[in-house]
Write a protein that binds this DNA or RNA. Structure first.
Length: 292
DNA sequence: GCGTCCAGGTCTACC
DNA sequence: GGTAGACCTGGACGC
């Protein structure tokens, strides 16, 4: 069956899909020729469903291989809206960057929506998987989690594991199968805290806490330091943080500092005129050439 | 084939 | 609050 979800006029499907590396990590898969984004989604009690997503003229088209209940359709619609941030109001951001010659391409192209997972838990686990390793190892760790602990859809693909499924797996599994190394106990502990209800990470998406307090909360999770917390803050819609990592520092050096390393303070100053949008302006600047 | 470095960093102990 | 050293993995690189 097909589900059509209206999209805002300023929404750029391709820019959003390739807004950062998440589209390369299971349970996302991108067909770069057809621009079909495949994603295994949970629909509640029943078996997960493999959704094939593409963009039409005015709506996002979601194709699923079986007829779903009204409740399941509502859940998929909610997830797709969340993943592509269709409800984000980009007006203020576009106004902030639109009058700057180096950034006016952003509103013109409809960039700035960062692809995210259906749950904060998944974004959090994946953020930990990006720390202190190559992208190839991040991919390997996420693949290990999904293939071993995810629930199977009808075509054999798997969903992202729930906190409960991750809590049941022993620490050795994370070390030996997922190849998570020193992160192994962090995954186990995080999953147990979330599954037991002690830690509600989904509330971070709608939290009223100021950014610095929310960041402190996030950093109480083992394995989450400044970079991972700030990356996650961007994914929950807080753009007054930079999330500087070695990739951004190297890219900034190439783009704006004649190939020489720049101090973090200097990078922050470069985008400070965008105030609460500085983190998003930075990321758009760094990834401008991804679609050129 | 082997050793070293480091990648989309974080934790702990110590000052 | 700031910093040094340890920490898993695996690909790239030099020898």
């Amino acid at each position: 069956m097909e589900i059509n979800i209206p999209m805002p006029d300023d929404f750029n499907y391709k820019r959003t899909v390739r807004s950062h590396g998440w589209y390369e990590l299971l349970p996302f898969e991108l067909d770069e020729e057809r621009w079909t984004l495949t994603r295994v989604l949970e629909v509640g009690e029943g078996q997960p469903v493999t959704a094939r997503i593409n963009a039409g003229n005015r709506a996002i088209n979601v194709s699923v291989p079986r007829r779903l209940t009204k409740r399941a359709v509502e859940r998929i619609t909610r997830d797709v809206r969340h993943i592509f941030r269709l409800d984000d109001d980009m007006k203020d951001f576009y106004e902030a960057v639109g009058s700057d010659a180096d950034f006016d391409w952003i509103p013109k192209q409809g960039a700035g929506r960062l692809l995210r997972s259906p749950t904060v838990f998944e974004d959090l686990v994946k953020s930990i998987c990006t720390t202190n390793c190559s992208w190839a190892l991040t991919d390997k760790m996420v693949t290990g989690l999904v293939k071993n602990l995810g629930r199977e859809s009808e075509d054999g693909r798997r969903s992202f594991p729930t906190p409960e499924a991750m809590a049941e797996a022993p620490s050795e599994f994370y070390r030996e199968e997922v190849r998570a190394g020193y992160r192994a106990p962090y995954f186990k502990e995080l999953a147990e805290r979330v599954a037991s209800g002690e830690l509600d990470v989904e509330s971070w998406a709608t939290s009223d806490l100021p950014t610095d307090k929310l960041k402190r909360e996030m950093k109480r999770v083992k394995g989450v330091g400044d970079y991972a917390a700030e990356n996650l803050l961007k994914l929950v819609g807080r753009y007054d943080v930079m999330a500087l990592d070695s990739w951004v520092r190297a890219k900034y050096a190439r783009m704006h500092n004649n190939g020489r390393a720049a101090k973090d303070k200097k990078i922050e100053r470069h985008y400070s005129r965008f105030n609460s949008w500085r983190g998003l302006a930075l990321w758009c600047d760094m990834t401008r050439d991804w679609m050129e």
